[in-house]
Lab assay of single mutants.
Amino acid sequence: EWSVQQVSHWLMSLNLEQYVSEFSAQNITGEQLLQLDGNKLKALGMTASQDRAVVKKKLKEMK
């Protein structure tokens, strides 16, 4: 059960800090993070497919 802050730290740990402000603005918590798919990541401004791939891979490892 991650807070928005913990999601931000997680993104930073993946060197994806450029997305922290948008994820925070949308109040993405750990629970919501686990529901994100490629389209939702795109909607959050994650347009680079490599970045989405990293996030999806890491989320899969956490589930």
Rank of each mutant, 00 (worst) to 15 (best):
K63C: 14
V7T: 01
E31N: 01
A43W: 04
W10C: 02
Q32D: 13
E61I: 05
V4G: 03
D51W: 02
A48N: 15
S8D: 03
Q6A: 06
K58Q: 12
K63S: 11
Q35I: 07
Q26T: 03
K56L: 15
V54T: 10
G38A: 13
G30E: 04
L36V: 08
L14E: 07
E31W: 02
E31F: 03
N15K: 12
W10R: 05
K58W: 10
I28P: 04
V54F: 13
V55C: 06
K63E: 11
S24V: 15
V55A: 03
S24Y: 11
W2D: 08
K56R: 13
E17S: 13
S8R: 08
L59D: 07
E61F: 11
S49K: 15
L41R: 02
K60S: 13
E17W: 00
I28T: 04
Q35R: 14
V55N: 04
Q18I: 06
T47H: 15
G45Q: 01
Q32H: 08
L34D: 06
V54E: 08
L44E: 05
F23N: 06
N39Q: 14
Q35P: 01
D37N: 14
V54R: 13
N39L: 09
M46L: 08
H9Q: 15
K58P: 02
T47G: 08
E22G: 08
S24C: 12
L34S: 07
L16G: 02
L34C: 08
A43Y: 03
L11S: 02
D51V: 00
S24F: 09
K63R: 14
F23Y: 04
K60H: 10
L36G: 04
S21W: 06
F23I: 05
L44C: 02
A43V: 07
V7M: 01
Q5N: 12
G38S: 15
T29E: 08
Q5K: 13
K57R: 14
M12P: 01
D51R: 01
A43C: 10
L16E: 01
N39T: 13
A53E: 14
A48K: 15
G30K: 03
S13H: 03
K42C: 07
W2R: 05
W10P: 03
T29K: 04
H9L: 11
Y19N: 09
G45T: 02
N27Q: 14
L41A: 03
A25R: 15
Q5A: 15
M62W: 07
L36T: 03
A43D: 14
S8Q: 10
H9M: 12
N27G: 15
Q6G: 04
D37H: 04
L44T: 03
M62K: 05
F23C: 04
W2M: 08
K58C: 10
K42S: 09
Q26R: 11
A25F: 06
Y19H: 08
G30Q: 02
K58N: 10
N27Y: 03
Q32C: 08
E22N: 11
K63Q: 13
T29A: 13
Q50W: 07
V4E: 10
L41G: 03
K63H: 14
L59G: 03
F23V: 02
S3R: 02
K57N: 14
V7L: 01
I28G: 04
G38Q: 10
G30N: 00
K57Q: 14
S3D: 13
K42P: 03
S13C: 00
D37Y: 01
Q18N: 13
Q18A: 11
L16P: 00
Q32G: 06
L16R: 02
S24G: 08
E22Y: 01
L44N: 05
M12H: 11
V54N: 06
G45S: 02
E61C: 06
G45M: 01
A43T: 11
L33D: 05
I28Y: 00
H9G: 09
N39P: 15
S49T: 12
F23G: 04
L34R: 06
K42G: 05
N27T: 05
K58D: 08
M46Q: 05
S8W: 04
K42N: 09
S24D: 09
E22I: 09
L16V: 01
V7N: 07
H9K: 15
E31K: 12
V20E: 08
K40G: 13
L59C: 03
L44S: 03
Q5G: 09
N15R: 09
G38I: 11
V4R: 08
K63L: 07
D51L: 00
W10K: 06
V20W: 02
E61Y: 06
A25K: 15
D51E: 05
T47L: 10
Q35S: 12
L11I: 04
L44G: 06
A53V: 08
K42V: 08
L14G: 00
Q35A: 13
E1R: 12
A43N: 10
V7Q: 00
Q5S: 12
R52P: 02
G45V: 01
A48I: 06
A43G: 10
S3Y: 02
L36P: 04
L33E: 05
K60A: 15
E31L: 07
V20Y: 06
S24N: 14
L59E: 05
S24K: 15
L59T: 00
E31Y: 08
L34M: 13
E17H: 15
M12G: 11
Q18W: 03
I28W: 00
W10N: 05
M62S: 03
A25V: 08
R52F: 05
Q5M: 13
G30D: 06
N39K: 14
K56M: 15
M46D: 04
T29P: 04
K56A: 12
G38N: 15
S13D: 09
E1V: 04
M62Q: 07
G30A: 06
Q5P: 06
A48C: 15
G38D: 15
R52I: 12
E61G: 07
L16I: 05
K56I: 15
V20R: 08
S8F: 01
Y19I: 07
Q26I: 05
A48R: 14
F23A: 08
R52M: 07
L11G: 00
V54Q: 11
K60G: 11
I28V: 11
D51M: 02
K56F: 15
G30I: 03
S49P: 15
I28L: 04
S3T: 15
S13I: 02
W2G: 05
L14V: 08
K40Y: 04
Q50P: 09
A25D: 11
Q50F: 07
Q6P: 00
Q50N: 14
L44F: 03
K40N: 11
L34Q: 07
G45W: 00
Q5I: 12
L11A: 02
M62P: 06
S24M: 14
L14K: 03
W10Y: 05
Q32W: 01
A53Q: 12
R52S: 06
E1M: 13
V7C: 02
V20A: 12
Q18L: 07
E22D: 07
G45K: 06
Y19D: 09
G38T: 15
H9C: 14
Q35G: 11
G30P: 04
R52G: 03
Q32L: 11
Q5E: 14
S3P: 03
F23T: 08
L14A: 05
S3K: 09
S8E: 14
S24T: 14
S3G: 11
Q50V: 11
Q32E: 14
M46K: 02
W10G: 02
G45F: 00
K56S: 12
L34W: 04
D37L: 00
L41H: 02
Q26G: 05
L11K: 04
S49F: 07
L16Q: 03
E17L: 01
E1D: 14
L44K: 04
S8G: 15
V4T: 12
V4L: 11
M62T: 04
N27W: 00
K63A: 06
K58T: 08
G38K: 12
S8N: 12
G38Y: 04
L36W: 01
I28F: 05
K56P: 01
M62C: 07
T47D: 14
H9S: 11
E61W: 05
L34K: 07
L14N: 08
E17P: 07
K58E: 14
Q50K: 15
N27L: 04
K60V: 12
M46P: 05
Q6F: 01
L16T: 02
K42D: 10
A25I: 08
T47W: 09
M46H: 08
M12E: 15
V4H: 07
W10T: 05
L44V: 03
Q18F: 01
E61S: 07
S21F: 05
Q50S: 13
Q32A: 13
Q32R: 14
Q50L: 08
D51Q: 00
M12I: 14
L44P: 05
E31R: 13
L41N: 05
V7G: 01
T47Q: 10
D37S: 10
G45I: 00
L36H: 04
L11R: 00
V55H: 01
N27I: 01
E17A: 13
T29N: 15
Q6E: 13
A25C: 10
S3W: 02
S49Q: 12
H9W: 10
S3F: 07
D37R: 03
V7E: 01
L11Y: 00
D37G: 02
K40S: 10
S13F: 03
D37F: 00
